[in-house]
Design a protein around this nucleic acid. Structure first.
Lengths: 354, 354
DNA sequence: TTGTATGCGTTATCAG
DNA sequence: CTGATAACGCATACAA
C-alpha cells in the first residue's frame, strides 16, 4: 500500500537515440521538426513512445536564447487581475508562450524578491500591474533585454511598454452621466493617490464637475486604499454629513462592494436613495438591484495589446524604447443611475428610456 | 529613440568568479548559503552587484533533482479557480515553490498537450481540478515521480492525492434547510454528471428529499453544464411548469448567476417569489437582494491541504499511493431562504430569527 | 575552506 | 541527411 515514489530518472535523448539506433543529433532534429529519413523517424517515434520520453525544456532553453516563459505579476489574483490573466493565457497559448505567475501581495520587499525570481527563471518578458514603488528597478529589466509591459497603473519614467485605459475620460463621462440625470451632490470614493489610476480617476471626477460648474466639495471626497472596507467607511462618512451626497462615483469594484454593503445594511436602495457609478464591471453589478452603472474595462483588448507588445519586442524588428497604448472604456448604463427625480410630469414615464 | 533591445548575454558564475578573484565553486557555494570566508564573501557580493548577476534557475535545476515549480492547471481562471490559485500562491511562496499556471479551456486535446508541457518544464508536482477525461493518463505522472493532487472533481481509479469538499453532505444540508423553512417543491440545477461534483451534489439533493419523504420529481431536475446560461435556461423551464417549484438548489455559482438573471428579468424576487440556495459563495451572493444562502467552500483549507500533500510527497518520508481529504463546507444563511409562508400568526415575527 | 573537473540534457557546428 | 562533439550555466565530488 505504501510505495516509495522515487523520482525515476527520466529518459534523455541519448536513451532515445540508443534505443532507436541513431545519433542524438538526429533525435534532436526530429524533435525540432527538421528533416529525418522516414525509416529513422519511425524508429525514433517508437523509442520515444516506449520510453515515455519528454524533452526537457530546461536543457533546451539553456542552449537557445528563449525559454518561452512570460512572467505575470500581480498584487493578487482578484477578479480583475485573474480575468486579465485568463485572457492573456488564452492568447499566449496560441504563440507557444507559457505564463509564469507570481503574486507579490503588494509588499514592497516581496516585489523585489519576486522580480529576482522571475529573472532567475529566465522569463522572456514580464507583464505586470504597475506599482508606484517599482520606480527605477524596471528599466533595468529592459536594459538587460527583458521587455516589460505594465498595465493598470503607470510607473513613471521607466523604459517599458504601457497599456492603460483612459481613466480620466471614462471617469469624467461617468460623473457627467450622474450630472445628466440630475445630480449635483456627487461624492467620490477614490484610491491611493500614489497609484496613477487613483490620480486619474479623481481627475476625471473633478473635470466633470468643473465642466458643469459644480464646485468641488472636499467633504465629498474620500481617499481610500482600493479595498472593500474603504468603500464602506466612505459611505459611513458621507451619510453622516448634514448635507449628504445624492450620488456616488466609486473608483474600483472592491470599494463599490463596500459601498453596497453599507447601503444594504442601512436599508438604502439605489437609485431611489442614492445613485451609484462604479469603475470596473463585475457580475455583482449586473445583478445588484436593478444593476449598478459601471465603467467596463475591455479586458480582452487590454490582453491583446499586452500580448502584441510582448510579441513585437521578442521579434527582431526595431521597436522604440517606450510605447504606450490607451484603450477606451465602455460605460454600461444600469438602474443605479436611473433619473431619480422627474423634473416634470411629462418625464414621469421616462424612467426606462436608456 | 529607437534602440535595438538585444539580449545582452547575462553574466554567469564564471564572470562573478573572475571579477571576485575566486573559483566558480566558491561562488556556487556562496549562492547556496554555504560557508565562505568573509573576505571572499564580500568580494563575491560586490561582483554580483556590479555585474547584476542572477543565477540561472534553469542550469541549477538541471543539476539538482528539483525545479521548485508546481504546475497548476485549471479549465480557466474563473472566480473559483483563481481564488484557490491566490491562496495556493501565498502558501507555496513560503516554501520557496513557484507556480506554473496553465489553463486548458476544458478542451480534451488541449489537456493532453498542457500536461505534456508541464512535464517538459519539469514541474515537481501537479495540482489540478480533476477532469473526467483525464482518466488513465494521470497515474503515469505518479509513476514517473511527479505527484498529482486533484481537487474539486475526482478522477476515479488514478494513483494520486485528492482534496475535496463533502459535496453530498453539504448539498443535503442545504436542501434540508429549504425543507426546514417550509418548502416541498424544490428544484435542482445540477451540472455535468460526468463530473463527480455533479453526481454528488445531486445525490445530496436526493438524499435530503428522501429523508423528508418528498418524492423526487424529474421535472424539477435540470442537468446543465455549470455555465451561467444553464441556470437561466433551467429557471425558464421550471417556471413554465404548471406547478412550478417554490425553491431552487443550484449546484455552482455560475449557474446560480443565470438563475438570478432570469429572476431579475422577470421581476421575481427572493425569498418572496422563490427561495434559493447555491453551492459556492461569491460577492454577488452576499449582496444580491437580502443575500443568497450559499454553501461556502473553505478555500484556504483546501489550498492548505493541497500544499500539504505536495510537501509530503516531495519530502522523503514514505507516503501511501493514494490519499484523500474531505473538507466540510459551511452553509451561510441569508435572505434568500427566509421562511416564506408563516404557518401561523405566531410565527409572523420569526422572519429574522436566524 | 577552496579550486578543479565532470556531468546534467539539449542544440548547434562541423565533418562525413 | 547523419554522426560525433562542443558548448550552455551551474552544482558537486574530490583533491588540495
Amino acid at each position: 500500500m505504501s510505495e516509495d515514489l522515487e523520482r525515476r530518472k527520466r529518459p534523455t535523448i541519448h536513451d532515445v537515440a540508443r534505443q532507436a539506433g541513431v545519433a542524438v543529433g538526429t533525435v534532436s532534429r526530429y524533435l525540432n521538426g527538421q528533416d529525418v529519413r522516414a525509416g529513422k523517424r519511425a524508429e525514433i517515434e517508437r523509442a520515444v513512445e516506449a520510453l515515455g520520453f519528454r524533452r526537457s525544456a530546461l536543457a533546451a532553453a539553456m542552449k537557445g536564447e528563449r525559454t518561452g516563459l512570460v512572467g505575470f505579476m500581480a498584487p493578487d489574483f482578484d477578479e480583475y487581475h485573474s480575468a486579465l490573466l485568463n485572457h492573456l493565457a488564452q492568447i499566449l497559448r496560441q504563440s507557444g508562450q507559457k505564463l509564469l505567475t507570481y503574486s507579490h501581495a503588494t509588499d514592497g520587499s516581496l516585489l523585489r524578491q519576486s522580480l529576482d525570481f522571475l529573472v532567475e527563471q529566465r522569463v522572456d518578458a514580464l507583464v505586470m500591474a504597475g506599482l508606484p514603488n517599482s520606480q527605477g528597478i524596471l528599466s533595468a529589466f529592459h536594459d538587460e533585454g527583458i521587455p516589460v509591459v505594465v498595465y493598470n497603473n503607470d510607473v513613471r519614467g521607466e523604459r517599458l511598454d504601457r497599456v492603460f485605459v483612459d481613466n480620466v475620460k471614462a471617469s469624467s463621462r461617468a460623473v457627467g452621466h450622474l450630472v445628466d440625470v440630475g445630480h449635483r451632490k456627487i461624492a467620490l470614493v477614490t484610491g491611493d493617490p500614489k497609484d496613477s489610476t487613483g490620480v486619474e480617476r479623481r481627475l476625471g471626477y473633478e473635470e466633470a464637475l468643473r465642466r458643469h460648474d459644480i464646485p468641488i466639495d472636499p467633504a465629498y471626497v474620500f481617499v481610500g486604499d482600493w479595498k472593500t472596507e474603504a468603500g464602506y467607511n466612505a459611505l459611513q462618512g458621507f451619510m453622516a454629513l448634514s448635507d449628504p451626497p445624492t450620488a456616488i462615483f466609486s473608483s474600483n469594484y472592491r470599494m463599490t462592494t463596500g459601498v453596497l454593503e453599507w447601503l444594504r445594511e442601512h436599508g438604502l436602495r439605489t437609485p431611489q436613495d442614492i445613485a451609484i457609478v462604479s469603475f470596473d464591471d463585475v457580475d455583482l453589478f449586473r445583478l445588484y438591484d436593478d444593476g449598478i452603472t459601471a465603467v467596463a474595462q475591455p479586458l480582452p483588448l487590454i490582453a491583446e495589446a499586452i500580448a502584441g507588445y510582448v510579441a513585437t519586442r521578442l521579434g527582431d524588428g526595431e521597436v522604440p524604447d517606450i510605447r504606450s497604448r490607451t484603450i477606451e472604456c465602455n460605460i454600461i448604463l444600469r438602474g443605479s443611475t436611473r433619473r431619480p427625480l422627474p423634473a416634470s410630469p411629462a418625464e414621469r414615464f421616462g424612467h426606462d428610456r436608456y
